[in-house]
């Protein structure tokens, strides 16, 4: 045991004596903020994504590797609005990095810069996993990404003033391309306006708000509570009077209830990436993520039975 400990100490000393990397270390809670920080920071930043699009960001283990990354980071970029409530407080408590504390300069919450939707009027767990600050899945509307880009670029410049000009230039470039892309997606998605859909989870409020899609039901009877067979049957029966055109769900979700519903209702499905990396070719790429999102919605709408 002493040998292990002294070996570990030696390893620590070795690491401590190495010169600190010049890059700004960014700890991104979600893949969308990792992609945005990479786009705005380029070679000046070293970005770590704590979660992937294949994970449910509510249910992340505050595992040792995350604590180690948190300890070394200069900037924390998260959605906030208590999306990370199940694990971020543990990283704060165990990660011993005062720079990233709430309110400290190294703490950046994206949800502060957008208008929150679905702020509940009543908070009761009988309603499921309710969220007092509103729906935290702001990244499903590309206009929100655009709103977060400027303050994030400013934050990078504040923490790394030596490269402030770089961040400003990269932001200008990103913003120009992003604005054009949003216009392109909005135009392409015009046929989706008013289309009624069933969602896997209550995760798409911002996407639907952007494209004018109408959510008529969710597979979960209550948010965060897995759908029961009885509820699925009830939804299926309800489709006769309240028809939907497709089932929209995120790559990380349990596919079983979605497959059941698709099979029994005959509705097409649209598996959306939700975050960069949630579909092939979208790794760390916000542009590709929305290309795929819009395309899959349009494809599903085309397959939808005429009513």
């Amino acid at each position: 045991m002493m040998k292990t400990i002294s070996g570990a100490f030696a390893a620590v000393l070795l690491l401590l004596t190495q010169p600190a990397a010049a890059q700004l270390k960014v700890f991104a809670c979600e893949a969308e903020w990792a992609a945005l920080a990479s786009a705005l920071g380029g070679d000046n930043v070293d970005v770590y994504a704590a979660t992937t699009a294949l994970q449910d960001v509510h249910k992340i283990q505050p595992r040792p590797s995350l604590i180690a990354k948190y300890r070394k980071a200069d900037l924390l970029v998260c959605t906030g609005a208590e999306l990370e409530l199940g694990w971020l407080p543990q990283l704060i408590e165990k990660g011993n990095n005062a720079q990233l504390n709430p309110g400290a300069p190294g703490n950046f919450e994206a949800s502060r810069y957008v208008t929150m939707l679905e702020i509940p009027a009543k908070i009761d767990r009988a309603q499921g996993d309710v969220h007092p600050y509103g729906n935290p899945h702001i990244q499903t509307d590309p206009r929100n990404i655009g709103k977060v880009a400027k303050p994030l670029a400013d934050k990078l410049a504040e923490l790394d003033p030596a490269h402030a000009a770089d961040y400003a230039r990269r932001y200008q470039d990103f913003n120009t391309r992003w604005t054009a892309a949003v216009d392109k997606w909005t135009a392409a998605a015009a046929p989706l306006k008013g289309v009624p859909v069933i969602s896997g989870h209550k995760a798409w409020a911002y996407l639907y708000d952007w494209l004018g899609i109408r959510e008529v039901a969710t597979l979960e009877a209550k948010p965060g509570i897995p759908p029961s067979g009885a509820h699925l049957q009830e939804l299926l029966g309800g489709l006769k009077t309240q028809p939907a055109k497709m089932i929209v769900y995120a790559a990380y979700q349990d596919h079983k209830p979605i497959e059941w519903m698709a099979e029994h209702s005959g509705l097409p499905t649209a598996e959306l990436p939700f975050s960069p990396g949630g579909a092939k070719g979208t790794d760390n790429d916000l542009f590709a993520t929305f290309d795929v999102t819009v395309q899959r919605l349009l494809d599903a709408a085309k397959q939808s039975p005429q009513s």
Partner: peptide, 16 residues
Amino acid sequence: LARGAALAVFAPLCVP
């Protein structure tokens, strides 16, 4: 059902 669900929001492990 949809209206009931709209009051609530798909949300995290723990909520104050």
